[in-house]
Amino acid sequence: MDQKAQGSLPPVIGVGTPVAYPAAAAAAVPYQAYHHLYQQQQQQQNQQLQMFWADQCREIEQTTDFKNHNLPLARIKKIMKADEDVRMIAAEAPVVFARACEMFILELTHRGWAHAEENKRRTLQKNDIAAAITRTDVFDFLVDIVPREEGKDEGIPRPMGAPATDPLAYYYVQQ
């Protein structure tokens, strides 16, 4: 064989000779890149939730008109009276409950939207809300009410070592 032909042949490796596999090294890079992207996404979602709660606190402090509501007070009062132990309800109670319900719905929707964006979708679906409930410990009371559809789970796989629950733990931002 001539020298040019020998230069193009792979080197002969003896038994017991360590071999570096470039494919294994290359596989670690996408995992690291994915893990970094995952961390950035979680930090962004955490910042969005902090801003959400800061805005909610600011809005509550600045509220002076308690007559306009997004949820019907009569329906809230009716639900409150459904409990046989409740006899009388102060006029302020349905107003406070209405605001609390609005905040609850907003946070649940916000967390569901974050799940939809993780899956690169712009449409909020039932499984997004179910994922938000599953990932957040505070929403555990809803697990039986909104069951997760296992067959339609489009969740991105979590990197090794990532928590199974929502890294955006429920918190209250104090002023």
Rank of each mutant, 00 (worst) to 15 (best):
Y34L: 04
P22D: 09
F66L: 11
Y31C: 11
I129T: 05
Y170F: 09
M1V: 14
P147K: 08
A82I: 00
P18M: 01
R158I: 02
G16T: 07
P163F: 01
F139N: 03
F97T: 15
W53S: 09
Q50L: 10
T63L: 12
Q47W: 00
T17K: 03
P157Y: 07
I76Y: 02
G161T: 01
E59G: 14
A169K: 10
M1P: 11
V86S: 10
G7H: 10
F52A: 05
W113K: 15
V29S: 09
H115Y: 05
G155K: 04
T123E: 09
F141A: 15
V86H: 06
Y171C: 10
I79R: 04
R111H: 03
A162V: 02
T17V: 13
A116M: 08
P147D: 05
H69C: 14
R158K: 08
K67T: 15
I105K: 07
R148Q: 07
A132V: 08
Q43R: 06
T109G: 09
R158W: 02
A25Q: 08
C101F: 13
K126Q: 10
P30E: 04
P11K: 15
A130C: 03
R122L: 06
A164C: 01
Q47L: 12
A100S: 15
N119G: 14
G7L: 10
R99S: 11
Q42L: 03
Q42I: 11
A164G: 02
Q44N: 14
A93H: 06
D85F: 12
A74V: 05
T64I: 11
R158S: 04
R58S: 13
A24Y: 03
E150C: 08
